[in-house]
Design a protein around this nucleic acid. Structure first.
Ligand code: NAD
Ligand code: NAD
Lengths: 211, 211
DNA sequence: AAACCCTTGTGCAAACAATCACATAATAAA
DNA sequence: TTTATTATGTGATTGTTTGCACAAGGGTTT
């Protein structure tokens, strides 16, 4: 079980499997074969088995996987058997949608603090319960509330500076919604959620098709 | 120039280059070397050159790339030298943030129609100008407004059905925000914007680090 | 016009990822 | 107990992507 040599794409797929299994559990499906799970996630059946094989033997030959058991194991692998505490920075249009989204909480991700610099916003209380802090309070609040993950929803121009502040406050992992590539020091992680890149992909394929 | 064998990761990076170049243009930088551009986008310099080499020779040896010229070429490759007309389906929390986001328009992506099934929403006018249509009107509106791209922001349970309706209305490309894997027929494209998968990645890495 | 930068464009090898194909093991039926 | 059936786990294979290293070529200086 050498964690270092696990393909990063495997982790992404585990997340998909987890979601599919959650759905199957709702539907009271007890057992699932790699074929069916693969189909549900749009991947190759052998891929599913190999992905899982990195971490152990979870299936029964001739039978398949027990949904509940496999889900439990995948969640353990991904670290979803606990709650993750997030801070949102920048409560604009997108930020509001994010904190209002109750699915995150269901999956174990919780916005426990919200920050902005706009004096008209700071101090206000959100419908979802959080009070908006000023960025000056970031270092103490991050420490007090034991925040694990920082979420950047500021304008692009402020994103790099915001990342620096989050890191200085002791945060190791960042989810970035701003359309810029954020430079992170060694040992810190950033994941970008990049709407425009996805649209550009669609545009490219539509353009090619037409040729 | 065999389009079929171009790595999909290359297209994604072209999108990043395009954005970086746009920024450089704002700063009145005329010439950029692959080193600098690579650093800005967090990739290897050889990667930049190789990505571009798939489509032609855009640089000048010993000098670098002319920012304006390269940007123009990349935009042409990606199909960003035109406007793309999008339909949004599901105007909830996320949908509202999307239509309010004026960056899309600046980049050539425009929400020209918005759909929902909620009778309380249908017929209302959005601050961004669009009137909310009922889903029943999808087929005619898609045709009349010549829509290229469908954007799904409905609950996950409705996403697959929505995709089917979009396809039946003649749409070839879909951007999906719902946390499900959508099954598409041959020749159609879907791109998923998947917040939770990204968070799961962060959770996994944080969990590993701690070991 | 020669010598010297500098940075591109690219052949090639290495690393990484996906897929095939089958031995293996569990279960059910005969 | 034997045979048939089924679907996992995995070695081998194929395919894809990345990165090194350097020849090629444009520009500049002497
Ligand atoms: N809205 C969308 O649908 C959408 C889509 C794609 C990408 N994005 C990106 O997400 C980010 C946020 O988008 P938005 O539409 O919510 O923008 P917005 O302008 O509505 O909100 C930005 C918020 O950040 C705050 N802010 C500004 N500087 C700050 C700083 N230094 N520290 C803390 N807070 C700061 C502002 O006060 C504001 O409340 C942008 O980078 C945008 O490009 C948004
Ligand atoms: N809000 C977020 O930050 C966020 C984050 C990640 C993912 N998502 C996903 O994006 C999607 C939308 O999220 P949201 O927060 O805006 O949800 P929401 O409940 O606020 O909005 C959903 C909208 O879709 C409409 N709708 C429902 N069924 C429909 C149908 N069949 N056809 C057309 N419209 C229909 C509803 O009337 C509503 O207006 C969900 O799938 C959600 O999981 C949202």
């Amino acid at each position: 079980m050498k964690f270092s040599k696990i393909p990063s794409a495997t982790i992404t797929r585990l997340s998909l499997y987890s979601r599919a299994l959650e759905e199957l559990l709702q539907e009271h499906v007890n057992i699932i074969a790699s074929d069916k799970l693969a189909q549900k996630c749009g991947v190759n059946p052998a891929q599913v088995r190999k992905d899982l094989a990195y971490f152990g033997e979870f299936g029964v030959r001739g039978v398949g996987y027990f949904v509940k058991e496999l889900l439990f194991e995948i969640k353990k692998i991904l670290g979803l058997n606990r709650r993750w505490r997030m801070a949102l920075v920048g409560i604009g249009n997108l930020g509001l949608a994010l904190v209002a989204h109750d699915n995150f909480v269901k999956q174990g991700y919780e916005f426990v603090a919200v920050f902005d610099v706009d004096p008209k916003k700071v101090g206000r209380r959100l419908p979802s319960g959080q009070t908006i802090y000023h960025m000056d309070e970031l270092p103490t609040v991050v420490k007090d509330k034991k925040i694990d993950i920082g979420v950047i929803a500021t304008p692009a121009s402020q994103a790099q500076a915001t990342a620096r502040l989050l890191i200085e406050a002791g945060i190791k992992a960042i989810l970035n919604f701003a359309p810029v590539q954020i430079q992170m020091p060694e040992g810190y992680i950033v994941e970008n959620v990049d709407f425009t890149v996805k649209l550009d992909n669609l545009a490219y394929h539509l353009t090619m098709e037409a040729v």
